[in-house]
Amino acid sequence: MSEHVTSITTYLVIFFALLVLTGVTVGVAYVDLGPLNDVVAMAIAVFKASLVVLFFMHVKNSRRMTKITVVSSLFWLLILFGLTLSDYWTRGFLG
C-alpha cells in the first residue's frame, strides 16, 4: 500500500497545538483590540482549521486533486460572500 502513514507523534503535536491555540483565542478575546479582535480570532481559526486539514485529514501528503478540491470549495465560498457583500456594501452609496 502506497498510502502515507502519519506518525502518532505528529498527531499528538497537532493536538496540543490546537489546544494551545484555543486558549490563545479565548485569551485574546479579553484584550480590547477594537476591530482587530475579529481579525485575530479569524486568523487563529483559519490557522487551526489548516492544521486539522493538513495533518488530521492528511491533505499535506495527498494528491494534487484533493488540494484542488479544498481550494475550490473555499474559492466558491468567497464568491458567495463577496458578491453578496457587493450588494450590501454599496447600498448606501446613493445616500
Partner: peptide, 22 residues
C-alpha cells in the same frame, strides 16, 4: 454561471452598483 445571480434581483432593493456588476 456563479457570478451572475444578481441579474434576477435588479428590481429588488439590491444596490444599483451591484446590479451593474452583475
Amino acid at each position: 454561471g456563479f457570478l451572475v445571480w444578481g441579474h434576477h434581483m435588479f428590481l429588488s432593493s439590491q444596490s444599483v452598483y451591484a446590479g451593474m456588476v452583475f
